[in-house]
Design a protein around this nucleic acid. Structure first.
Length: 496
DNA sequence: TCTGGGGTCCTCACCCTC
DNA sequence: TCTGGAGGGTGAGGACCC
């Protein structure tokens, strides 16, 4: 148990929405909702202004629109968020080498390991300086929690939101936690929360009173023991700087359910290719291929197959995914398909190749007659490529709303005339009016607001969607809004 | 128009081996 | 020889998190 409150949890406030407000001056102080804009999209982040209308993350976008019809609904621009996140994480790493990012907008820092703080007073000072540095570097507000453990630091930052700082003094943990909802604790979601509620347990204090044995009986060994310790404020998990990925996956939810088996097969092949791309991008190969299918009724099933060795060969993954699909009944329609790879290894393609060759040679010398199944590639060989023609529309296809490309898309119509699409929130550059962002589009028109992070709110102009003077562009970098020194490290690449 | 995407971890069932 | 466990690998699903 750590005595000094030197674990820091940083949480950027309404991160995606705040970045959008910082980069689009006309949206400051307005309800901004970032998420999937398709018929099945959900809210990723809502600005605090939008939250007043009851909009929150994970809510269907359609429902959000009903609650907050005048909000600005934007697609996420992950490349910009990543760039801003890099700036923030770099500031954290100045404090300590032990930084554990949880997502683009959240991280733990072990201040003691970095010598940044050994006691409460120094920790508070460090936290305040950090918030100021983030504000200066990005123009965004962040909340900071300080405590002796990760769990408590996270609780503290949650309590401090928005734009605040809270330190939990050692010795005060149990009293602070006792009246809080069990849902405050990490690992207690809707299901466990409801389970506990039915047993009459709604607060952390009641959880502690229930005792370890009772909790183990209710929610199982591992979870029960963990919950009980958390309820007592005990958490000795260290801050871990490097975490190895354990799986890579891609999935798509379709705007309308797919019924056509050929189309479903084609989508699975496409997802397998995307998955392998990601797998290779991360420098991994993997052994277990997983197919995920969510049916029309939202029931979800997974099917998996473990190969003899790790692979990053698209043909191998495609074939395995196709085999798995054959065992799945898709009558009634599917709304989501996914392909993943687990059991990751650090093999590069060359390693794998060498491994296969070695295995083959070994098989040969062992004179094992026919089957020679030691080569991973052999496993695939069963069937010819299922993915042939298929709808080209599919390849430009729905794409997960959150994965939606950040610029304007070009899709291909049956006549193969490129049709330009302008998702709300995406960046554009006009030959005459300069940089702007898409406020909306429809009936052959696209409305663009011309403004940039440092400018006053800009004016709106409407163009034909195929206007040659208008083109998609990269996001402009955010700069510290108070910093006149606008040279500050451009977080985003490209952009004028 | 209810319910995204990318992960992690845990549990349980089943099979196989020792 | 039969049987019961232990324990690992695999497959499936659920809960949770951001």
């Amino acid at each position: 148990m750590r005595a000094a409150p030197t674990i820091l949890h940083l949480d950027m406030d309404a991160f995606y929405a705040s970045v959008e407000q910082a980069s689009k001056p006309s949206l400051r102080g307005k309800a901004v909702i970032v998420g999937g804009l398709g018929p099945r999209g959900v809210v990723a982040t809502a600005s605090y202004e939008a939250r007043r209308f009851g909009v929150h993350s994970a809510m269907p976008t359609a429902q959000a629109r009903r609650l907050c019809p005048n909000g600005a609904y934007l697609i996420p621009r992950f490349s910009l968020y990543r760039a801003v996140s890099d700036v923030v994480m770099a500031l954290l790493r100045e404090l300590s080498p032990l930084v554990e990012p949880l997502s683009l907008d959240e991280a733990f820092v072990d201040l003691e390991a970095g010598g940044a703080a050994f006691d409460a007073e120094a920790a508070l000072e460090t936290g305040q300086m950090l918030r100021a540095a983030i504000q200066a570097a990005t123009g965004l507000s962040a909340s900071v929690g300080l405590a002796g453990s990760k769990m408590l630091a996270k609780v503290a930052s949650e309590e401090a939101k928005p734009d605040g700082l809270l330190l939990i003094e050692p010795g005060t943990e149990r009293a602070l936690l006792a009246p809080m909802s069990v849902r405050t604790l990490p690992g207690v979601g809707p299901a466990t929360g409801e389970h506990l509620r039915r047993a009459g347990i709604t607060t952390v204090g009641e959880l502690a009173e229930a005792g370890e044995d009772e909790l183990v009986r209710m929610v199982g060994r591992s979870h029960g023991v963990g919950l009980y310790r958390m309820a007592l404020g005990l958490d000795d998990r260290p801050v871990v700087a490097e975490r190895d990925a354990k799986s890579v996956s891609v999935e798509d939810t379709f705007d309308v359910d797919l019924h056509d088996r050929v189309r479903i097969r084609n989508e699975v092949q496409r997802l397998a290719d995307r998955c392998v791309q990601r797998l290779r991008g991360s420098g991994h190969s993997g052994r277990t291929i997983v197919l995920k299918v969510r049916r029309y009724d939202f029931s979800t099933l997974t099917r998996s197959e473990t190969l003899r060795g790790p692979t990053d060969d698209p043909a191998v993954v495609r074939e395995a995914a196709a085999r798995l699909l054959e065992a799945v009944d898709t009558t009634g329609g599917v709304r989501l398909l996914g392909v993943g790879v687990t059991g990751l290894a650090d093999y590069t393609q060359e390693d794998l190749f060498a491994q296969s060759m070695a295995a083959e040679a070994a098989a040969d010398t062992a004179a094992s007659g026919g089957a020679a199944e030691s080569d991973v590639a052999e496993e695939v060989d069963g069937r010819g490529g299922a993915g042939e023609s298929g709808a080209p529309g599919g390849s430009a296809g729905p794409g997960g709303p959150l994965e939606a490309p950040e610029g304007a898309l070009t899709s291909v119509t049956p006549e193969t005339v490129p049709e330009r699409r302008w998702p709300a929130g995406s960046d554009v550059l006009h030959a005459v009016y300069g940089p702007g962002w898409v406020q909306g589009s429809g009936v052959g028109r696209v409305t663009v607001r011309f403004e940039r992070p440092g400018s006053p709110p800009g004016r709106v102009r409407t163009f034909r969607v195929e206007d040659p003077e208008l083109e998609p562009s990269d996001p402009l970098p955010l700069v510290g809004k108070t910093a006149p020194d606008a040279r500050a490290e451009p977080p985003a690449s490209g952009a004028a």
